[in-house]
Design a protein around this nucleic acid. Sequence first.
DNA 1: CTCTGCCTGACGGGAGGCTGACAGGCGCCG
DNA 2: CGGCGCCTGTCAGCCTCCCGTCAGGCAGAG
Lengths: 222, 222
Amino acid sequence: MRVLIVEDEPRIAADIRQGLERAGYVADVVADGEAAWFRAETEPYDALVLDLGLPRLDGLGVLRRLRASEIALPVLILTARDGWRERVEGIDAGADDYLVKPFRMEELVARLRAILRRTAGHASPILRAGTVELDTRTRAVSVDGRPTELTALEYRLLSFLLHRPGQVVPAGEVLDHLHGVGTEREANALEALLTRLRRKLGPGVIETRRGLGYCVPAADGP
Amino acid sequence: MRVLIVEDEPRIAADIRQGLERAGYVADVVADGEAAWFRAETEPYDALVLDLGLPRLDGLGVLRRLRASEIALPVLILTARDGWRERVEGIDAGADDYLVKPFRMEELVARLRAILRRTAGHASPILRAGTVELDTRTRAVSVDGRPTELTALEYRLLSFLLHRPGQVVPAGEVLDHLHGVGTEREANALEALLTRLRRKLGPGVIETRRGLGYCVPAADGP
DNA sequence: CTCTGCCTGACGGGAGGCTGACAGGCGCCG
DNA sequence: CGGCGCCTGTCAGCCTCCCGTCAGGCAGAG
């Protein structure tokens, strides 16, 4: 599950991101409405956490544009305590739920899960690739039905790739996700990590496209 | 796809270049407006990443001169965080999109991809020719519905031609786009590459115009 | 027919990726 | 506070396979 967080306050954005990642989501953050609109339009997110009251293009604007483009992305809006007008407008504009700041992380996660369930039907919290299963709620991984323990980094890597089945992800992008943007590191670190992960998962789960990047095969039933 | 990066800060220029090359583009860097203008005018780039605030001839100047010469190159401008005036002027001067510094590499790549698609007149991120499909987001290629693995160079070549359906591209130009300007190479390298690519794609996808160049047939219904 | 431009199979060099070994760092436990 | 594991980045060496080169063949133009 990929979630886009739209929040201009860095501190809050970081909190939300951490909370969501802890809950097993993959989260990206943007800080203004224009960027949010663009990302939501061009990349396959599963939900949007949207702060109203953004610079440039405000949250409601984003929401209206999304709905006008018939992008049926589940949207959870965040509003100030006294912003009941906003809230009404937000719901009118097509938000799926709202949350009043300040809020508890658990509540955000719960509501997000709820609207994901509601709108996406039954998008399973379990990611699969071949014989490998990853439960995003419990963070349990099993191979061939056998429970398998992964380290923190291994889990993040696997989860990251499983969220993008069939997509070839350049190595640099993977590294950025694992360690945050801009952290310089030997490319070899990723290769070493991959070796260790593949040893646990068995062959055929993570493929290498020489010169392009890595990918897990799309799970096409025959 | 060849991109010209115009950025006077070496560090940032290197980052962008690396990011773009990682994403499969061929990128050249120039550091000032005069050089940018010259290169853009004399060589066939597919897009321009243009920092505003350059020495000699500034970014907006470059842009205006380009547009005045009716060079319809897609241009993505980079602006400082607080430079909203610049941004407006940039859009007015004919930029296709802008990005506020600092930015994430992924976003630059995504926006670049978007304006390339937009200006090439493609509505969808999926390029087609006959039975061949190429998804620019996932980098997945399928022929006849069957997923097909291409090498990095094969992918670039196919993507390059698919972006110009119906257009005959001279071999030299293709080579420039694949390897960057000035890399001397036997013409035969391209032919060998084409042979290998055609073997994967099947016949009728990439045609040869003897003495002129290569092209993929425009996808016109009968 | 001839010539030129393009195609194709074979092959070898070299870059990119893999892996086993090792060491530093961090948390955990006694 | 000290010792002990485990995790993870780094290094060096090996291996795979991509791609440029070469030689030879085919076909279209004149």
